[in-house]
Nucleic acid binder design. Structure first.
Lengths: 142, 142
DNA sequence: GGGTACAATGAGAATGATTATCGTTATTTT
DNA sequence: AAAATAACGATAATCATTCTCATTGTACCC
């Protein structure tokens, strides 16, 4: 999967160099308020009349991740959920029922900048997820 | 980051109640220094003469997670890696080459306790992972 | 304008980790 | 010890993701 990085800098590229289909994937993702799977993106884009294949959706998402425009997290059953990168959204996930509730804030906001400087590694984004048991589930036998 | 729940409440059971095979899975996991896949655990246990099936490894890991004894993170290619819960180990993962290097510390150590109190959710553990481009990869055209 | 090189795409096959099934074997309860 | 229940193993099924490869699109050069 090709990359096409801007040789002049080490930072994510502008969206300008994206193909039509890649842009379609990105804008669809931006319109949704929640993180979604590749499969669902595919279905929705088709319903809207876009003509593209499932492989292209995956390829586009990989590319967009590489460019730092999209991030993903993985659900308990191994499905990757994608979202535009700007939303610094984290979750509390119940090990028992599997539900995730979003955390209203990011406990790492300040720290990431320090980290950026201290590591020889260009950080694009992070994922953070808390696991445990949610309130309803604590009241019922496992 | 551990949990050690009060046995009088609706909490995970002590390791005492684990079956032989479940214990085998747990102790094998504790002996390894790195996070490993279920498949690898299975292979290694068989090599050591343990007689158990792959399905049992998965079932045991699920159970151990539910009890707060084991945690997992998911690699970029969708494989779950398991580790005993006490090690608060996070990673810097390169989007380009896929390599992960462990971060030497946890930026959340202090915060998690505050969080515990502020949420109606029993936190067992968290996963934190940074994504970006590693030093070597920034120097080569993709 | 035509040609060449290479990137992007689609359809479907292949992969591979995880789950489900189901008959069997332990383990607990009575 | 029988009955009830939980754990187990082997293997089939599932399903998200990746691979293959033939085709199409695009950029660049002559």
């Amino acid at each position: 999967m090709t990359v096409m990085l801007d040789p002049s800098s080490h930072s994510p590229l502008p969206t300008t160099r994206l193909t039509t289909k890649q842009k379609a994937v990105l804008t669809q993702l931006e319109q949704l308020q929640e993180a979604v799977s590749a499969q669902r993106l595919y279905t929705e884009l088709r319903q809207q009349g876009e003509s593209l294949g499932l492989a292209t959706v995956y390829r586009s998402l990989d590319l967009l991740k590489l460019r730092g425009l999209v991030q993903s997290r993985t659900t308990a059953d191994g499905e990757a959920l994608y979202s535009p990168i700007q939303q610094d959204q984290h979750y509390l996930t119940c090990l028992q029922c599997g539900n995730s509730v979003p955390l209203g804030f990011c406990p790492l906001q300040k720290m990431e900048n320090q980290l950026r400087r201290s590591q020889a590694f260009t950080i694009y984004y992070h994922t953070l997820e808390f696991f445990g048991v949610c309130e309803p589930c604590t009241h019922q036998a496992p």
